[in-house]
Design a protein around this nucleic acid. Sequence first.
DNA 1: CCCGATTAAGTTGCGCACAACTTAATCGTG
DNA 2: CACGATTAAGTTGTGCGCAACTTAATCGGG
Lengths: 171, 171
Amino acid sequence: MTPSPATGPTLPAVSDAELLRLDHQVCFSLHAASRAFGGVYRDALKDLGLTYPQYLAMLVLWEHGPQPVKAIGEQLRLDSGTLSPLLKRLETAGLVRRERSAADERSVTVRLTEAGEEMRERALPVPRKILAATGLSVEEVLGLQGLLGRLTSALDEAQGQSGASPEPVRG
Amino acid sequence: MTPSPATGPTLPAVSDAELLRLDHQVCFSLHAASRAFGGVYRDALKDLGLTYPQYLAMLVLWEHGPQPVKAIGEQLRLDSGTLSPLLKRLETAGLVRRERSAADERSVTVRLTEAGEEMRERALPVPRKILAATGLSVEEVLGLQGLLGRLTSALDEAQGQSGASPEPVRG
DNA sequence: CCCGATTAAGTTGCGCACAACTTAATCGTG
DNA sequence: CACGATTAAGTTGTGCGCAACTTAATCGGG
């Protein structure tokens, strides 16, 4: 209800100070939800000895089979700086093998081992545990997924059009 | 539509394999949304020289004034292992001071400096940038916030009741 | 009053995320 | 064919998140 100083480009009906308070709530909510999810996955994945991002990588391999690091990175939106050490750890654990492609020596194909394939069976009950932990119905989850998808697209779209300035706070 | 083997405790109408595929989508969606948000905040906060979690800590201090590390941690759900170095960086940057409480020598009170207080003015336009980047209305944001809040509560509730097993995959 | 339990903050170690960079292979155009 | 541009993967450095641990102060029961 409070009139705005009309600073922003999108919405006129909320003041900056109110938005700052709202932001406190919203960005924190997302941050907290993401970490709460992480905690539940940590529990659910203890049996498999996987971290959450490692599980994501295994999901991609279970679903789409052997593929280059690049392709995994595109599906998970992760770059080689994150994926290379992660995949190396999965290889050390005996779950995947990595081999240079013959056709293109720059590319490395990641492939599940026997143990990696077998782990899929043990991973089957994980999603149900997670779903139960959310307390949401499948329909609500699908709705959330849709909203998050639109959100991510919009955020990606909006990225990289601001002015640069000082360095982040370092110790 | 496919009938389920009726394994899980909550929902009967979806098979484990379908859930594994769904999980691929959902947990990835949340992960991706969280990181996309991080990217947009990174842009918006460049001017201030703050990271996203540093911004969260500043929001708490702007809104609620000087308080012990413990209290900040409760609001952000972060422990001292994360907060101590983060606050130390904010102190190095001249934004906060940390001083032992006289009443309880175990406690450390975190307090904004002049520079820290002044930064609030420069932070006012940030939330509007974020809101614009989401492409959502204030109402939708509030709805999302509510859903995420319920989700986080449920996830926290559900945490810590599973069986332990091997170590995570280490290199 | 004393001593074990609890509590606040900090430290260490590991994995993830990301920016910036390096290395090596492939592509494309003259 | 030659050579600069592009591309895939990996490396380095910084910060966050969390578990496990340490240190020091406070609390509480005998």
